[in-house]
Every structure is written in C-alpha cells, then in structure tokens.
Amino acid sequence: MADPLTETIVSEARANTPAALRAVYESLAPSVLGYLKSKGCEDPEALTQDVFLAVFSRISTVSGGPEGLRTFVFSVAHARMVDDYRRRERQPATAPYDPQLDQRTTESAEDAVVHSPLAAAELLDGLSEPQREVLLLRVVADLSLEETAATMGKTVNSVKQLQRRALLALKERMAGKEAADKHEQHVQQPQ
C-alpha cells in the first residue's frame, strides 16, 4: 500500500493548506491514537488532539519530508504520553465510592440518647419542659408528630423544632460527658 503522505502533501501542509493538513491528520492520527492507547494513557483521544494541535502550530518548521513529519508527530506524541504519566503520578489515585464497603457509621441522636449509660431522667434534666415533654411523648409513648402536637396543643412544626433542639442538646451533653470520661480515664492511667 502506498504511503498517503507524499512530499507534495507535506509541503502543502507546511504552507498550512487545509486539505493537506486534513490529509496529514487522517494519515497519522490512527497510528498516534493506537500508540497512546497501547501506552495506557488515560484519555488517548484527547491526547491525540493535543498532539495534532501542537504539530500543526509548528508544522512550518518541520523538515525531512514525510519521514521527518512522522518523526516529529511521534516525538510530540511521546512527550504527551510522558506528560500524562507524570500528571497521574502527581494526582492521588481515585476510587469510586461504594456505600456497601463504607464501614463508617454515626448513630442517630435518638439512638445515642436511648443507648446512653446515663439514666433517662438525668439526660432530660437539662432540657426545657416543652423539650422534655416532646421527647417523652415521641420516644417513650411512641406518638406520631401529629398526635404529639394535638396532645401538647402545638403545631406539628413547633413539635418538630422542639424535638430537633432537644435531641441536639442531648447529643451535645453526651459528647461532653464522653470527652470528660475519656479525659478522666487518661488522667487515671499510670504513666
């Protein structure tokens, strides 16, 4: 098969003739793409485009006819491949997030309160009377928001706010207690 790149096409490409530039691209792009794919480049199609942008911006300086042009094109392709490797080495490897493999958990405020080593009465002491009432009706009596609101003579939204604030206050108290316990254990350990 005859080489589609001829001295004439290379000369016309050096003069930036669109048809000749297209012929150069169509002749060499598949080989450049194959080279970049075989080297394991992350996005070989984009790198191929980068190669030809660089080649076409400097094609007027190319000498040596079709062989010189081929050498120049693959020199640029090789440089882009090396740049791709270096860029990937500088960036940390990314892994897709899989929720099935993620073992981190945080218990809900409700669970933290229910499973606390502190007595329920002690936990509720620091809350306002409406906050205590909401938690007792919602958690202990297992009433719905609507039932709690009707029992207390409040709106559902005000019950939600009272519950949210109460649970946040309890969670903060428990976190403070746990931190104090850890500090106490650390102080009591012999050095």
Rank of each mutant, 00 (worst) to 15 (best):
S63L: 14
L33H: 13
G65Y: 10
G65N: 06
P66E: 10
T48Q: 05
H115E: 12
G65M: 12
E45Y: 08
L36G: 03
Q100D: 00
L47R: 07
L21G: 04
A109G: 08
L127H: 01
Y97M: 09
F52R: 09
D102Q: 06
T61I: 14
R87A: 04
R22D: 12
V82L: 12
E122A: 08
L69A: 10
F52S: 05
E89I: 11
A20V: 09
V76F: 10
S60E: 11
S60Y: 10
S116W: 08
T105P: 01
R22W: 08
H78G: 06
L101K: 09
R104T: 07
A20G: 10
V113N: 00
S108L: 12
V114C: 15
V51L: 02
Y25E: 14
A77L: 12
G65T: 08
P96K: 14
Q103D: 05
A109C: 06
L101W: 01
Q100E: 02
F72V: 15
P44S: 07
P99D: 04
V114K: 02
G64Y: 03
R90I: 02
R58W: 03
A93Y: 00
A46P: 01
G34Q: 07
V62A: 09
S27H: 00
R80E: 15
D43F: 06
L28N: 03
H115L: 13
S63W: 12
L118C: 01
P18D: 00
D50M: 09
S63F: 11
V114P: 07
N16K: 12
